[in-house]
Design a protein around this nucleic acid. Structure first.
Lengths: 170, 170
DNA sequence: TTCTTTCTTCGCAAGACCTGCAGATTAGCA
DNA sequence: TGCTAATCTGCAGGTCTTGCGAAGAAAGAA
């Protein structure tokens, strides 16, 4: 996404007003690599501007995405994440900590798809689910303690929520 | 997913009971190509068995997915969809009607990913967003009526909900 | 600078989706 | 048949997101 100054100009040019709340959010999102949710961005914004509303955060993020300055990503963790990187890229999702990282994939536009018959593809989204380096290290340690393999258990619902949703921002 | 009779045996072998509700859901999901949500499956199930609970539908679908008989798919439309096809495949998602179709992609396992450094990939999910044939035909007709290109409008939030969520089952 | 118009913000309510819980019910084994 | 553990149902509650309206503020005009 563009720099705050450029976004200010773009908003004004579009007939939108530039408020202190929006300027703060422009700054917090610009070059943010953490793929925050609206709520985690709200937490950070609240530190800088106590009293800012979650509603305003949603509104501004939505505006930015309609302007093409932000990409909405849904990694299946429940809440939508917002990505200021609008390049053609995809995501790595850690199944343990929920962390999301950008990744560039060569040739994703020329994937060999069978039976498209008639369907016209506009965008392709690729999610790589796995384990990030820190979580893999943790799992290797705990696996030496040999957790028993359980069968089907009623309470073992594969929840959408990750064990340890990392919601910190840079 | 397996046929109802096989699922019955598998459930019993796992210490789970086979109730009429479950048998109905086994039948409705077996070879179901529509990627239903819990709620749409519940609607159909209610016709066959009035009084069945949405809670039971969720429970059974969750059980089936923990047994590996069903795949949970999240196409970003809000509700989780359930797919009895557990082959290695991906999905086409119509941005207009919300329809989801299975698609087989060659070589998706060997995508050329840069900067993986340390991240270990477990599963890859590919979503192709675009327009299905019927919706494309509709759009081509309506585009001759020349809808004006609007700028950024406040109410033009890119909602997760599709215009016409098709929730019918076969 | 002041005025005026229009857009924004905020707070709350509500909607969609999903899960936890508890009492009543039932499958399935002995 | 009788028993026990699993299941079903209904509801309450949690999370995420959006709609709405009153109060407030940005930005151009006078």
């Amino acid at each position: 996404m563009k720099a705050p100054a450029e976004l200010t100009a773009k908003f004004r040019a579009s007939g939108l007003k530039v408020t202190p709340q929006r300027q703060l959010l422009f700054r917090l999102m610009h070059e943010n690599k953490s793929h925050p949710t609206a709520d985690s961005l709200f937490s950070v914004a609240s530190v800088h501007m106590p009293g800012i509303s979650l509603r305003t955060v949603y509104q501004t993020l939505t505006d930015l995405s309609s302007m093409g300055e932000l990409r909405l990503i849904d990694v299946g963790s429940g809440a939508t994440r917002f990505d200021p990187n609008i390049d053609d890229h995809h995501h790595l999702v850690c199944q343990s900590c929920g962390d999301v990282r950008d990744v560039y994939v060569s040739g994703s536009g020329q994937l060999d798809v069978n039976e498209l018959d008639g369907f016209s593809v506009d965008t392709t989204t690729i999610l790589f689910h796995g384990l990030c380096t820190p979580c893999r290290a943790t799992q290797e340690v705990s696996s030496t303690v040999a957790e028993p393999l359980v069968g089907i258990s009623k309470s073992n619902t594969s929840s959408k929520n990750t064990t340890n949703p990392k919601e910190r921002m840079s």
